[in-house]
Amino acid sequence: MMTEDEPVVFVIDDDASVCKSLMRLLRSFGYEARAFHSAEHFLEQVPFQGTGCIILDVRMPGIGGMALQDKLGKTEDSLPVIFITGHGDIPMSVQAMKKGATDFLPKPFEDGQLIDAVVKAVEKSRQIRMSCNELNNLRMRLDRLTPREREVLPYIIAGLLNKQIAFKLNIAEKTIKVHRAHIMEKLGVGSVAELVRLAEKANIEPYDQRS
């Protein structure tokens, strides 16, 4: 687990001049900024674990901004992305926002616009970072469950009674009751409702009664 340092702003733009000027601007606002002239260069980096955001040019030779967003979006702790483009059009910005971009700035933009976006993105990053920590915590707790308990969990969060679960799994109702108690204890929750919220966070699907 890494310590939470000052946020870092990554500027990815094939235009060296744009990169340089944005670095300056960010620096004037007290941000640490790092520039990359292509997506490929950025990906070569050791994955960044801290808070921060990416200012990403949409159109670049090679891997473009949108493609890079797709790649980065697959990890839970990805940095928020602020798209900048010299050729802003609405369909593209909509698509970008859907994919989780925090902002879409058409070039040229005022420093205030950029900084507002950066502040927002860094905040988001921080939250992501925090929830990410929470999730890690949860996962560690889930890891403590036995395979049998792991098997029972979906039935519990689906709201089935012990009897029903026992029938479904063809084991004794009493055993189910023990499992339920252990699960509640291991995961540190006091109610089923709490358990359901936690499972949801951990992406554990409840048992589908229709199946």
Partner: peptide
């Protein structure tokens, strides 16, 4: 062309603000 013009304009504005 707008894109091409926006690039230097972006730099100019950012540099000036900085």
């Amino acid at each position: 062309l707008a894109h091409e013009l926006n690039q230097p304009l972006t730099s100019i504005l950012s540099n000036a603000r900085a």
